[in-house]
């Protein structure tokens, strides 16, 4: 017999439910990304998961939103709720898209799980006029302290995996990321740093940011 489809664990919210004003429906870091997107823009969300951010953008900003997601459960959840999402792998499928196809390409908390993050990054700024990338910062003082004190790979709230089962195979610090962008000709237009509680702690990608930020959100474009 047919059973009602249940969302995957972690898919906490019905993405089709329109956000009411004043209601905080999405994580602060996703809200921050959403605030960076112009209304009505063409947006590709790479690694869109259960479509939380994409649905928020479609319903509150009227964007022409598309998603690319590796997990078929995530894709089905999105499509069942009327979002335009395809199953695919950012490491291999971004090359299909034409240049400047989107106003914004979003990659939220996913770059560190890519096999070839440098190539993915270059594809993001090729496909989109701008790219919004959020990253966990491995340069955060707690992580540095953990490694110094314990001599073991850090396991934090945000990076809650052991070294042997983590999908995060290419972690970096804010400074590492800034260096890569400079080397490959990507301009960082804005850097927003967030603390442990996803509160905005300021802008900029300097040494202090690299020490205090738990994660950073970058607005990028190619030079």
């Amino acid at each position: 017999m047919t059973q009602r489809w249940e969302p995957t664990p972690g898919a906490v919210r019905d993405p089709a439910r329109p956000a009411r004003s004043g209601e905080s429906l999405i994580r602060a870091d996703l809200k921050l990304i959403a605030d960076m997107i112009e209304p009505g823009a063409r947006v590709l969300d790479v690694g869109c998961g259960d479509g939380t951010l994409l649905a928020h953008l479609v319903h509150t900003k009227g964007v022409d939103g598309r998603g690319l997601e590796l997990s078929m459960d995530g894709v089905k959840f999105c499509v069942n709720h009327g979002l335009s999402v395809i199953q695919g792998d950012a490491d291999t499928d971004l090359k299909d898209y034409p240049s400047d196809a989107f106003d914004y390409v979003i990659l939220s908390q996913t770059l560190q799980a890519m096999r070839a993050p440098r190539d993915v990054l270059l594809d993001l700024v090729r496909i989109g006029r701008r790219a919004v990338v959020s990253l966990p910062n491995f340069g955060n003082w707690r992580i540095r302290l953990w490694l110094l004190a314990m001599g073991r790979m850090p396991v934090t709230q945000r990076l809650g995996y052991q070294w042997w089962n983590t999908p995060n195979i290419h972690l970096c610090t804010i400074t590492d990321f800034v260096t890569l962008c400079r080397e490959v000709g990507i301009r960082i237009e804005d850097t927003v740093i967030l603390d442990r509680s996803d509160r905005i702690r300021g802008h900029g990608a300097g040494a202090v940011s690299n020490l205090i930020a738990e994660q950073a959100v970058f607005m990028l474009r190619r030079c």
């Binding site: 894709v75 979002l83 335009s84 395809i86 499928d93 898209y97 034409p98």
Partner: peptide, 14 residues
């Protein structure tokens, strides 16, 4: 799907 992506068409794929 790849051909539709190549022209940035609006596509879902399951």
């Amino acid at each position: 799907v790849h051909a539709l992506n190549a022209v940035a068409a609006n596509v879902s794929f399951v």
